[in-house]
Simulated scan of single mutants.
Amino acid sequence: MKNFNFQAPTSIFFGEGQINKLSRLLKEHGNNVLLTYGGGSIKKNGVYDAIYQELNNEFNVVELSGVEPNPRLDTVIKGAQLCRENNIDVILAVGGGSTIDCAKAVAAARFYDGNPWDFTANSGLVKEALPIVSILTIAATGSEMNGGSVITNLETKEKLSFGSRFVIPKASILDPTYTFSVPSYQTMAGSADILSHLFENYFNKTNDTMVQDGIAEGLMRTVYHYTPIVLKDPSNYEARANLMWASSLALNGLTGSGKDGSWSCHGMEHELSAYYDITHGIGLAIITPRWMAHVLSDETAGKFAEFGRRVFDLPKESSKIMAEKAIKLTYDSFKAWGIPMTLGEVGIDDSLLEEMAEQAVAHRPAGSVPFAPLAKEDVLTIFKASLEEMTF
């Protein structure tokens, strides 16, 4: 295990009715609020009205609506300008990971004179940020409890991230009932995203990380258990609650601290959604089992076998056989949920695969050591394999 510094400073208010804490949480930071949200689903499910009822005309509220599923740089710049013009004290981000990611970039950009896209090349440029309070409406990214943000630059066709402790939300309200109305497509995409966060940290070359891996395995089992339940019964409170909490714990540092190395599938998927604007979790579900199959070797088989035994309860066999079965179960689970499992089903053909593969490798952190190194040819092979159904 590597040395690490772990902090999880976000105050979590979990459960039905916790929105009654909202006014107090905002008042800790000021009265001028930037309310940030996406395409309007919070108006349909009643969250928007509940927010204004709680605020009770005690705050000056400016709205930044229409945040995109892959939040765009232009929206970040617009939000930062609204903050300056209205002397915003605190940002209230309501929605899923995209809205919260956008709010983080806006919070940092408020105090930065340059282009906030600069953060993706150097997170150290973030020296200050507005405080953020979030209300989560979908279990997926874990952005409600971490300092990571992903934004998209349409001009350069890039989707890149930055991270800073300055932008970790001060408080997050997690009410599982707010996820009851999430459509099945977004629900399964969210679960795939949670699993991918766990996979990226779990499949790692750092030795002797039993604590982190044990937490990850428990969270994986939770996602695999409750996702089919929620897809059949969207208003099942316990299922929604378990997925929501798993989302937060999957990427708040618990499973990644003490480990070294870069992620693989997220970098590849970011190219897909940068070029084609597809749903992030769906792209991850398509890419992940092909990546697993591509990197399976004598060196990596043991970890995949361990995954199969502890998450899917596979009986003890040779590592190679267990690994292959675990990969098949990963693929079959996504397919059983109803996720489209080929690139063609989400509108991606082979015309830009090589260009995206080149970009995926170019954006890998310098000097990083992934679970299994990937050159451009490896990424291209994985992309091409994702055009067709997997056979086992």
Rank of each mutant, 00 (worst) to 15 (best):
N204H: 05
I229W: 11
A366H: 13
R221S: 12
V379E: 03
G79Q: 01
V126T: 00
K104S: 02
K205H: 13
E238Q: 14
L55T: 04
G283Q: 03
M210C: 11
F166W: 15
V106A: 03
I339F: 01
I138L: 14
R110F: 14
G124K: 12
A326L: 08
I100L: 00
T75D: 07
L272H: 05
D313G: 10
A362V: 10
S264Q: 14
I88N: 03
D89K: 00
F119C: 04
K328P: 11
D378C: 02
S98R: 05
H225N: 14
I229K: 13
T300H: 09
L343K: 01
G30W: 01
T288N: 13
S248D: 08
G95T: 04
K328V: 15
T137R: 02
F59G: 00
E299N: 08
E389V: 10
H294M: 05
L272Q: 02
N70T: 08
A241F: 13
G190V: 09
I100S: 07
S65Y: 12
T187A: 14
S181Y: 10
H270R: 03
E324Q: 13
A385Y: 12
Y237A: 09
A140P: 05
I138A: 01
F334Q: 07
P131L: 08
K316L: 15
I168A: 09
